[in-house]
Design a protein around this nucleic acid. Structure first.
Lengths: 162, 162
DNA sequence: GTCCCTATACTCGGATAGCAAGTGTCCGAGTATAGGCGG
DNA sequence: CCGCCTATACTCGGACACTTGCTATCCGAGTATAGGGAC
């Protein structure tokens, strides 16, 4: 089971966008440069976030992306699902209804015990991701990001937004 | 995020193997026929389970696979990890240490806040899968499997093992 | 009749192709800006 | 000097190649069995 790299990028980008002044917008190319990732591919992730309403795009010369919803109302799960989709990790193909022991389909319970357990785990994963919002991440930033890096990052954003 | 089909197969196969008499062994080809899945590919999953010690292989004419550990001591997580590997779903590539805001690597905290949250969700998923054992699944079988299917399944196993 | 040997049939195990999805890139559509022109 | 128009530069958005990993398959190595022959 693997999550794609764009998930990591999307989370970092959303965090950065939450730090911007309300009316400012940061282009995808600058976000890519800031994180050292391929710009054209990162754009795909940002488009997914835009479709989900988490960020909104501003076209035109001084355009870019900015948060579309208050940081406190965006959970990590929202970002992850916007990029990776809403499907469950476990997909039941109903093999219990195949083979020599199969009987009339209407006799089976709605979900088999195995799928039930797997779905439960999936929900536990989602529930945990729902607990943390982007605003929570901003709070942790103060204690986890080296002060030097924060200064350099702020300087970079200052220059780009001017 | 997607789990491969062999995960589902492995769980069903482990459950079936737990139903067999202690000294009996069921070949991969019969397990495949029972579930209606490609035999040669299922073999790969069973080999993974064998390497993990969850099942043990019996070579030779009346050989096959049988449970290598009591059903009560095998959790769903054990089976899933045997087939899918032990890696976390989220892989942190440390993009925070790249780009124009980067500073000396020794200044950074061991894990960033984002990765920390993702790992926490991963652990919640694993914890939930650890709660259910194969023995638990057997208990649920009595109430979730149609009685007709149970009879046909038992008859099939009787014939194959004779 | 009993024991041993050999050939057989069946099993697992790892090495080998095909395909879908993730990864990476590009170019076209659209818009706010900046400069120039006319009034 | 002010307002309007046009050309421009920059942005997003979706359509197009490439690589990795999942899906599917095959053939060889090894072993318990079954049958036949010798004693």
């Amino acid at each position: 089971m693997r999550l794609g790299e764009p998930v990591e990028w999307a989370l970092h980008c959303t965090t950065i966008l939450a730090l911007l002044p309300d009316d400012a917008a940061l282009p995808a190319s600058k976000l890519a440069e800031f994180h050292g990732v391929p710009a054209a591919y990162l754009a795909k992730a940002l488009q997914s976030l835009s479709r989900a309403g988490i960020v909104e795009s501003v076209p035109g010369r001084h355009g870019g992306y900015r948060l579309g919803v208050p940081a406190a109302e965006v959970t990590i799960l929202d970002v992850v699902e916007a990029v990776e989709g809403h499907e469950t990790s476990f997909r039941c193909t109903e093999i219990r209804k195949r083979g020599p022991a199969k009987v009339s389909p209407r006799l089976y319970s709605p979900v088999c015990a195995i799928a039930e357990a797997m779905y439960r785990a999936d929900e536990a994963w989602r529930a945990e991701l729902r607990k943390t919002t982007i605003a929570d991440l901003l709070g942790r930033l103060a204690t986890t990001v080296p002060i030097e890096a924060a200064v350099k990052g702020a300087a970079y954003l200052q220059e780009v937004l001017s």
